[in-house]
Design a protein around this nucleic acid. Structure first.
Lengths: 250, 250
DNA sequence: CCATGTTGCTAACGCTGATAGCATCTTCAT
DNA sequence: ATGAAGATGCTATCAGCGTTAGCAACATGG
């Protein structure tokens, strides 16, 4: 038989080109712009040709996910497996969050339970998380079963990204991901410093809650008071942080 | 002018029928089964007739979301606003989780950042959460700003549901939602009992992590040991709970 | 040099969401 | 009662989608 070896180099190149065109379309124009015809045109071919390289549109999207994710982690300085497993987990968290925010449409695909469950890219990401949690368990810093830790981290991460993506960019609370990370870590790890007793913060927050009812103040006074209380409760709830000079958070 | 009053009752009834047919289709056969033609056939009409009642397919889906959610909360005993704001929040959490698991396809639609952000049903749900958190703030039990608390709860809830939905039903860890709730509450509320010092659990989890390497044990022995350690670490990490006699929890 | 497999094209199918335009029915003012 | 106006629902149709069939051109190993 004529066994034309298909690792012809050219085959891989055009295949990669298709994937990259699809990825660009997905990134710049969203999910609905990724049609077989649009991808084919961007890659300089006719739509049916795509099916010479991918069984499905699904398979194409899987390849896109894999490619984009690989490109992203390659761009990051890959500080895999430093001496400190907890630092590694933290780095992985930041990568995950950053990836989700930078690739909203793709993240939506990977997150969709019907599609994402069998996506190889998503599975690979989960495997990385599993390994990192395992290393933490091995050094005796985990106080919940590994599986529970993995699920909590995974759920918290995807939830944080989705919540951020659901908020218009100019209103996003970029500290949410950090807060979520600390929240989960406090439940999962041993030896995390416990939160200080917090009556001051609680009082500030409680008073802030009733501020709108303080009709004896003018609107301007109330607005100023509200802003002070916001800063107070926010600052007190994050001990050890100095107030940021650029208070741009609208 | 002829001002045909369109609160004709019949109009609302056929409209409601369309919504219910679409909801049933969505629930029983998933997102892709909800086509204008399928909905129309189920409702006993032709596809274009739907557009006499809904501007878009999007608008139809919004109506479906609203209807299903309203039906769901109506089915629950509506214990709104008991004396205890924290109990109310807890009840709302359970409702949210239960709704997500019972209506996977719809939850997927509401969760999609591109669609869900402007969905009235999703906005209404968020408003309920906002009000409940506000009441907790007012009684001085919140130790983070209201907005932060809302975002954490929302992100944790959607993340937990998505994670559960991404797992095949027979492998689901149904306690994940509870664990996530406690995790978030420990970071958000004052006066939550701090976790006990946890060296025993950590030791059990750490030993569990190296169990696969214990080659001096037989496979059967290792399996048994693993199961004991799973039960030990799981039980120790949830203080105050007796081991469950039946592993099945509703 | 031919047989075989690869690559890419045109044409087409069945499906989707959506629109146009025409009948029919309801309703109300006259 | 009757006719104008709006509501309702239909058929026919559109452009777009993922996907398949079938054919031509090309590469390549025996």
């Amino acid at each position: 038989m004529a066994e034309v070896r298909s690792d012809n180099a050219s085959r891989h190149k055009t295949r990669a080109n298709i994937v990259e065109c699809a990825a660009q379309l997905l990134r710049e124009q969203g999910t609905s712009a990724v049609t077989t015809r649009a991808v084919a045109q961007a890659a300089g071919m006719q739509a049916p040709t795509i099916y010479r390289f991918f069984e499905d549109k699904d398979a194409l999207l899987d390849a896109v996910a894999e490619h984009v994710f690989a490109t992203y982690v390659a761009g990051k300085t890959l500080v895999e497996d430093s001496g400190d497993p907890i630092a590694d987990l933290r780095a992985g968290w930041d990568t995950h969050i950053g990836f989700g925010l930078a690739n909203a449409a793709l993240f939506g695909l990977l997150t969709d339970p019907s599609r994402g469950a069998r996506s190889p890219a998503a599975a690979a990401g989960l495997e990385v998380l599993r390994a990192r949690v395992h290393r933490i368990a091995a050094i005796g810093r985990l106080r919940v079963p590994e599986r529970r830790a993995i699920e909590l981290i995974h759920a918290a991460g995807t939830g944080a990204v989705i919540t951020l993506l659901s908020t218009p960019p100019e209103h996003r609370d970029l500290d949410l991901a950090d807060a979520m990370y600390e929240t989960v870590m406090r439940s999962i790890l041993t030896d995390v410093p416990t939160l200080p007793s917090d009556s001051a913060t609680a009082a500030a927050v409680a008073f802030r809650a009733v501020t709108p009812k303080l009709t004896m103040l003018t609107d301007a006074e109330r607005a100023l008071l509200s802003e002070w209380l916001d800063r107070a409760s926010d600052g007190l709830s994050r001990p050890g942080l100095r107030p940021r000079s650029d208070a741009v958070q609208d």
